[in-house]
Computed example of a mutant assay.
Amino acid sequence: MAELAWFKSSHSTNEDAACIEVAETPGVVHVRDSKDKSGPQLAFEPAAWKAFVDFAATAEV
């Protein structure tokens, strides 16, 4: 498998300790902790990831 192209949100900063990174491949969205690049990863179907992002964008803090 080719190496994944990971990216962080444009809202993330180097000082932010609570960041995730995302890499998209056909049919799968990979998610990992930006502080533990060799640690565990989650994998979501694109529709499930979109549903989560949409929910998180509208959730009250």
Rank of each mutant, 00 (worst) to 15 (best):
E3L: 08
F55G: 05
A51E: 08
W6A: 04
E3V: 06
V61M: 15
E3F: 02
A57P: 01
P40Y: 06
A51I: 07
N14S: 14
V61N: 14
F7A: 07
H30L: 12
G39W: 04
A51F: 09
V31P: 00
C19Q: 10
S10L: 05
V53H: 11
H11E: 15
V53L: 11
L4S: 02
H30T: 02
N14H: 15
N14T: 14
A47D: 14
G39R: 00
D36Y: 03
A48W: 12
P26T: 12
F44S: 11
D54R: 13
V29I: 13
P40L: 01
S34E: 04
A47E: 11
A5L: 08
S38C: 12
I20W: 02
M1I: 10
V22I: 15
K8R: 15
S12R: 01
V53Y: 10
R32W: 10
K50H: 03
V29Q: 04
F7P: 02
D54T: 14
K8T: 07
P40V: 06
V28W: 02
S12G: 03
S34I: 00
V22M: 10
K8H: 09
L4V: 01
E24Y: 14
K35D: 11
E15N: 15
F52C: 02
P26R: 06
I20P: 00
Q41I: 04
E15P: 05
G39I: 04
D54E: 09
A5K: 06
P26M: 08
E45T: 08
L4R: 01
A59S: 08
P40I: 03
A2I: 05
K35C: 02
P46Y: 06
V53K: 10
V53C: 09
K37F: 09
R32Y: 04
F7T: 10
V22G: 12
E60Q: 09
G39V: 04
A47V: 03
M1S: 02
F55K: 01
E60Y: 11
F55P: 03
I20Y: 00
A5H: 09
K50C: 08
H11D: 15
V61F: 14
A59E: 14
